[in-house]
């Protein structure tokens, strides 16, 4: 009932039709995209480490992450270091220490990476884990959000997110604290 009432009021009250603006190409600096991505990522509290293969990536993670904790991954190649995630109740992920997932691409202007549900294994995983590790191919970095959404296009997903750095808050007197409700750290592993 309210539906009709609201829609009728809107139809009656909305202004004369205005077309959408023409699409423009926004400016981006001609810089090294990896360098720019790294710089912004560090600015927002993340870290980046480049490797040339997965063995190197694993060795690096072992050196920086809590060894005894519970490691979960949605990347089959990391099965020997972490448990491959299985479908099920997300509450069972409560005590995950390290989660390793892949991203589709990164965005240089804001240090964000684009991850869809299939790459997460479970929607809750990138949030509930204490530490998040995301693998990103170094050739998959775009300059701006404009190119990012061109890549996304009309692709189908149930859930997806841009993730930019570890979770954070500055709600107490504007002092930045890393590790609000989500991960306490975000590591991007840049792969060849």
């Amino acid at each position: 009932m309210s539906r009709e009432k609201i829609l009728n009021a809107i139809r009656q009250n909305q202004p004369e039709y205005q077309p959408l603006p023409e699409e423009v190409n926004f400016y981006f600096e001609d810089v090294d995209l990896i360098e720019k991505f790294k710089q912004v990522l560090e600015f927002i509290g993340g870290r980046l480490h480049a490797v040339s293969n997965y063995t190197e990536a694993k060795a690096y993670l072992e050196s920086i992450m809590p060894p005894a904790g519970r490691w979960i991954t949605a990347v089959p190649e990391f099965q020997d270091h972490a448990t491959l995630i299985e479908p099920g109740d997300p509450h069972l992920l409560e005590n995950v220490d390290v989660a390793i997932i892949k991203a589709h691409f990164g965005v240089a202007e804001n240090g964000a990476v684009w991850v869809t549900e299939e790459l997460m294994g479970a929607r809750a995983l990138p949030f509930i884990t204490q530490h998040l590790v995301i693998l990103l191919n170094k050739n998959n970095i775009v300059p701006l959000m404009q190119q990012a959404y061109r890549l996304i296009g009309n692709v189908e997903y149930g859930y997806a997110a841009f993730i930019a750095g570890p979770s954070k808050t500055a709600d107490i007197e504007q002092s930045l604290v890393i590790g609000a409700h989500g991960p306490r750290s975000l590591t991007i592993i840049l792969t060849d």
Binding site: I44, A112, L144, Y157, G158, G165
Partner: peptide, 22 residues
């Protein structure tokens, strides 16, 4: 998404921009 957080807190984007579709 380019405008929102730069205007709000000066961050380039919020940590999470979550797209709920289904």
């Amino acid at each position: 998404l380019r405008l929102l957080t730069r205007s709000a807190t000066g961050q380039p984007i919020t940590t999470y921009s979550s797209h709920f579709k289904k």
